[in-house]
Every structure is written in structure tokens, then in C-alpha cells.
Nucleic acid binder design. Structure first.
Lengths: 246, 246
DNA sequence: CGGTTCTGTTTATGTTATACACAGTTTCTG
DNA sequence: CAGAAACTGTGTATAACATAAACAGAACCG
């Protein structure tokens, strides 16, 4: 255990900056960060599927194999891309209480995912958490510190907001203007050909659900979750015997 | 437009049962459903990455290419797997109101994702919706029909609960017993080596967050969302001027 | 019975990640 | 300052993957 991150191994090591410092040989031209930054650019422009080792290496006029001098494997590159793309979480203004702070945080998360929607794909599987990603969790938990919620509940509340953002990004992807019409039209067709089996959905669609005017339930969901957290916070302050879930 | 689903094309066709009926030639041994069912078994047992055309075909002692007689491409197979694995949504008991009904629904969704956690991966990208998957959306929207929520809001509420289930499955995968300790240990190590940067998280971890006793925020999140929906419903009944999100 | 249509296979192509060995370069050591 | 060691980027090779194209045989229709 010589380095400060000596306890970290495998996919965690690269993410937390644990790097072997070479003393001899030619200077490395690149760094893991430069490689990941190039990969982020490709993913932003052409989607995550376009991020192959070859494609990333081509960005530097290198061969695919050269990247393995900087990154142990593609999976590690995706981890680093994710952490770098998220970036350090902005500080929150908690002076007006936890609710405005969490609202601000949620909008920041939404914006970050909007910039790099492929993060949805890199984060479906179990994977190591990077330092920047962790800073995103730090903020809301800190904002909830004085609410009376337990530590795990504070984390759960943040995860709840995060999952809402994820679903909003997922159902309204970047190129919604081009891709969604096809899918939406197919859904509308199927729905009306089987109207008898989905009466409630047909009615909701008639009210504008699934349509172009339906700008996503971001505000609705945000309000629901914050109201819900507020209810739990209130019950914690009234007394330790809170209501049941169902 | 000869068939009832004639309007559906591309990846939508297979999902909604639009099949060309062969009149001559050898009887097909398989069906798209049998192929997908075999693939589901593989995904359940070995993960989605193990579902290659070759691996699925081997289940029938067939060649990989033979599957293309039943399924246009791998992507369509994944779509069909998803719809079949979800299955038809169970009916809900709405006699006690929308809240118990939605609670019941959420637990059913959770159970379905638990059985087939790879559905998380097959559903990150934009993709066509199948008839069974659509039945899962029908139930909660029907249960919310008389609440005063608009159609889009009813859908948003269901999506909100769904996204909560997704995040719970994601952060506590099936093989948590084997995979999570590694990841959790790495997180704990990183957290304590940088304790000064994540004071709130360190405190929360001390309270049991991220630990083995933290059985996930399923109930907490469910309660928050339902309380939040209840608040909006109440405001709709009190008058059309509801509160703001932040 | 002959032609048509359909199945499952064979063969081939292009892409992917990545293991391994090497040539050239830089730096450390004696 | 010579030689060894370490390191970089490359060339070559492999195995897995999806899937296109052509084909042999079987089933059915007229």
C-alpha cells in the first residue's frame, strides 16, 4: 500500500487515478483522460455503439492496440468516460432549505444526462463508481442532512430523483425529433388496432399522452417525489411512527 | 392492409404477431416464440451477453443462421424476449382505491424484473413496445382514471413508479450476494480514503447506507411516490390551481 | 410429375476486442 | 559512456460475433 489508492483494484483503479508512473522509455503521448475525452466526443456525436477501440484510436491516428497502453480494457474506458462526462457536481444553494436545493440538483443531473445520453447505456450494469460520479451523490445527501431522514433514506431519496431523471431521458432521447415519430406512430397504430384491450391508454392518448405535445413528465415527477419526501420528513418530525408505504 | 396489423412495420411486426403464413415447403420446426423462450432461459441463467444467435440456436441443435428464418435480426429477438418475459400484466384490485392498486402493481413489476433482470439492458434504448408490455401500462392508468389526473399525468405517474422499480433492480442485482461485496468494498475503500470530499456520504454510510443491512429503498421510494401522487390528486380535487414543482 | 416455395445448412464477409511479440526510444545503472 | 532495462506504439493473429448469399432437400400445388 504505497499509493493513497492502493486498496483499489481492477476497474476501480483507473477511475480513481491510480496510475503507474513510468520512469524509462518514450513519453506516452496520450493519457487515459485524453483517450476517454475523445471517446466521449464520439459517443456524443455518433452514439455509444460507434465507440470502438479502433474508432477512438483513429482520433489520434493511432492503432487500436495502442489504447491498451492507457486503458486495461474497453469496459474501463466506458467507466472513465462516464465519470468524466458527468464531471464534478456543482455546489447547491441550501440556504432556502432542502427542497429548492434538490430541485436545482435534479435539473443539473438532467442537463448532464441530456448532454451525454449514452450514459444511460454505460450505467445499466453493475460497475465501479468514480470520484466525480460520487460527488453527484454527495450533494443531495448533504442537503438532506438536517431533515431527520436517516442516512440510507437520504441516499434513497437522491436515487429516487436520479431514477426519475433517467426515465425522462430514456423516453425522450436527444434525437426525439427524428426517431420518436416512427416509434410513436407505430405505438399509435397498434394502440388503435387493439383499442378494446387498452381502453385506459386509448383515453390517455386522446388526452395527449404519447403525443408530440406531451413534453414529458419531468415537472410532474419531480413534484411528486419532492412532495413525497416532504411527507416523510414531516412524519419524521411529528414523531418516529411514520405511515406505511401502501 | 390485409392483416389486422398491416400498419406495423419493421421491428414492430414480429412483436405484434404479424407473421407470413407459409403454404408450401417443410413445416417450420420452431416459432419466434420458441426461439425467444429459449433465449430468455439463457439470459436468465447466464446473462444477456450469453444470448448470441449461435448460443440460442445450439439450444435446438440448429445453426445460427437457421434462426433468421424466424427472427429478422437479433434486435427483434431481444424485443420479443422482453415482451414475452414481462408477460401479460395481472389484473389489479381497484376496489380499495388507486393507492393499494398501484402498490400491488409496483410489486408485480418488481417481481417481473427480478425474474428477468436483463430486461433492464434490453430496454435502455428506444425500441418498439409489445402487446404484453403495453398491458403493463394499461393497468395503472386505468386505476388512476377517476383521480382527476389528466391522461398524460396518469401515464407519468406509472412511469415514475416504473423508474423506481428499475433503479431498485439495478442497484441490487440478482447475484448481489456474489457481485455486490466486491463493488461495495471498493466503494467503501474509496469513500474512506477520500472522506474529506464526501462527508455526507461517509456519515450516511455510517448509518448503514451502501451496507449489507441496507435492503434497498424500495418501500421508501414507493411511499414517497405514492404520497406525492396523493398530494397532486388532492390539489386537483381542491381546485384546478395546483402548486409548483420546486 | 414438374415446378414452386420453403427450411435448415454451408460458406463467406466484415467487425469486434484483445493476446503476443517486436522494433525503436528513452532512461537508469555501473 | 556502454549496456541493460523499461516503456511506447505497431504488426500480426485469434476467437467471437452478426448476418449476407447461395444451396440441397423436402413439401405442397397444379
Amino acid at each position: 500500500m504505497t499509493s493513497e489508492d492502493a486498496g483499489l483494484t481492477g476497474r476501480m483503479a483507473l477511475l480513481w487515478g491510480q496510475r503507474a508512473q513510468p520512469r524509462r522509455g518514450p513519453k506516452p503521448v496520450l493519457t487515459p483522460e485524453r483517450v476517454a475525452t475523445a471517446a466521449i466526443g464520439i459517443a456524443d456525436a455518433e452514439g455509444l455503439a460507434a465507440v470502438s477501440m479502433q474508432r477512438v484510436a483513429a482520433e489520434f491516428d493511432f492503432t487500436a492496440m495502442s489504447l491498451y497502453r492507457y486503458v486495461p480494457a474497453r469496459a474501463d474506458l466506458l467507466d472513465l468516460m462516464t465519470d468524466l462526462a458527468l464531471g464534478e457536481a456543482p455546489a447547491l444553494d441550501t440556504s432556502a432549505g432542502w427542497r429548492p436545493a434538490l430541485t436545482e440538483w435534479t435539473r443539473h443531473v438532467y442537463a448532464a444526462f441530456r448532454r451525454h445520453p449514452w450514459i444511460l447505456e454505460t450505467t445499466v450494469r453493475v460497475r465501479p463508481t468514480g470520484p466525480r460520479e460520487l460527488s453527484w451523490m454527495e450533494r443531495p445527501v448533504a442537503a438532506l442532512a438536517d431533515t431527520g431522514l436517516t442516512g440510507p433514506e437520504q441516499v434513497d431519496a437522491a436515487v429516487l430523483l436520479l431514477s426519475h431523471v433517467r426515465s425522462q431521458i430514456q423516453y425522450a432521447p436527444v434525437d426525439a425529433a427524428t426517431r420518436t415519430p416512427e416509434v410513436a406512430a407505430g405505438l399509435a397504430t397498434a394502440l388503435h388496432e387493439h383499442a378494446d384491450e387498452y381502453p385506459a391508454l386509448v383515453r390517455a392518448a386522446g388526452d395527449g399522452a404519447f403525443g408530440p405535445g406531451d413534453d414529458g413528465g419531468f415537472d410532474f415527477g419531480l413534484r411528486c417525489v419532492l412532495d413525497g419526501i416532504a411527507a416523510v420528513v414531516a412524519s419524521r418530525r411529528a414523531g418516529p411512527a411514520g405511515g406505511a408505504a401502501g
